[in-house]
Amino acid sequence: MPNADHNWQGDLLRDLKSTGPAGAGTPADPRPSVPPARPEPTAPGPAAHETAQAHAHAHAQAPAARAWPGTPAPPPTPDSLPVIDKAMAAVARRPVRGEAVALRAARAVRRIVSGSAAREVAALTRTAEVLQQPVTTGRQIAVTSIRGGAGKTTVTALLGTTYAHYRQDPVLLVEADPALGSLPLRLGAEALRWTTADLADIAVPQMSLLDVTGYLVQLPDNAWLLPGSQGRIGAMVDTVTYERVMVALRRYFGVTVVDCETLPAEVARVALSAAQARVIAAPATLDGVTSTYSVLQWLRALPAHVIEGTVVALSVTTPRPGIDVDAAAERLASAGARVHVLPYDRHLAAGGPLRTELLARPARLAATRLAAEVFELSQKRR
């Protein structure tokens, strides 16, 4: 492994470990090469969240007050707004597990009887090794779709939480779909302050990782969120703003996953072009598959590395889809992209905050394999 890998990631980890008690932001022990047997960690409790937010707010004030040489004064600190108000949150039901108890039990018995458990562990070990590969520069992964409701925000959240779970270096999730985007809600964020447009006017090369993370929303497992808006209609991110933010933040994070606007919006096209790997989210419906196939045909007309670095995440959103999912996946793959099917999962279909411990095993495994292939493709493009 090149020395540059050690130096780049080591500097980031030292920055994070110096943030306060218990090394806030970085796990104390190295991650295992095999997924843990226990459920993935849940979001921190209210007290821990309040502590993390207060810590992040304190860092946000320090860089905002500094007069960096040759840079304009930063904008005034915006008010912190809740992701969802209490009255609206009250209509939500209790989160459900991805599978019913009977299905989970039957699946466990089949794994034991068929002897597939050992093969599955071996496959997961290989997948974990891919996800934990070092990087010399930050990898950017863009997620988009041809229309709303295709599952791109869900796919973004799944990718980001998977990378954060397996990797040691910081992971960033960026919302570049600011018009009432739902990424903060999907990730379980409670309040938002700074946005993509704000950070574009603030970030300068002299900043440390601690300065930067003061403007971000802290998530579990050493992950961070940069929201596109505070839930207001009319907020926009143009291509200039997007490029400034991504260039400024790239060196701080090992992997950045971007929830883009839908195609053919200009920011989405810029994001797809600049990313080392692309994910097209498609619902497992006839119109979803047809429109996504058209997008893939368009990508084939671009330089070859674009389609070669593209993966389709075909999401099954109902228990009984109206198409032959395997045949649809084969048809999409004929256009030159890799295709991964995300099976139906009750927890994902509910649309609330993503809690990985509630996902059904098939959905969790599919998301992990998708993340591994996308990351591996991003490593091929320097």
Rank of each mutant, 00 (worst) to 15 (best):
D29C: 11
P30S: 13
P30A: 12
P30W: 09
S33P: 09
S33F: 15
S33G: 15
V34R: 06
P35H: 07
A37M: 09
A37T: 13
E40K: 00
P41T: 04
T42W: 09
T42Q: 14
A43L: 15
P46G: 03
A48D: 09
A48H: 03
H49D: 00
H49K: 07
H49S: 04
T51Q: 09
A52M: 00
A52F: 00
H55M: 09
H55T: 04
H55L: 11
A56I: 03
A56L: 02
A56W: 01
A58W: 07
A58H: 11
H59C: 01
H59F: 01
A60S: 14
A60Q: 02
A60E: 02
Q61D: 14
A64K: 02
A64L: 15
A64E: 04
A67H: 08
A67L: 11
A67K: 10
W68H: 07
W68Y: 13
P69T: 04
G70T: 04
T71W: 14
T71C: 05
P72H: 02
P72A: 07
A73R: 11
P74Q: 08
P74I: 10
P75N: 08
P76F: 11
P76R: 13
P76I: 11
T77F: 14
P78M: 11
D79M: 14
S80G: 10
L81D: 11
L81E: 14
L81W: 11
P82L: 12
P82A: 11
P82Y: 12
I84L: 15
I84K: 09
I84M: 14
K86P: 08
M88S: 12
V91H: 13
V91G: 06
V91S: 09
V91L: 10
R93Q: 08
R94N: 06
R94G: 01
P95A: 10
V96M: 09
V96G: 05
R97P: 08
R97F: 09
R97D: 14
G98P: 06
G98Q: 05
E99P: 01
E99V: 04
E99Y: 05
A100E: 10
V101R: 13
R104M: 07
A105S: 10
R107I: 04
V109H: 11
V109G: 11
R110Q: 15
R110C: 08
R110G: 07
R111A: 13
I112Q: 06
I112W: 05
S114H: 06
S114K: 08
S114R: 10
A118Q: 04
R119Y: 00
R119L: 03
E120P: 00
E120F: 00
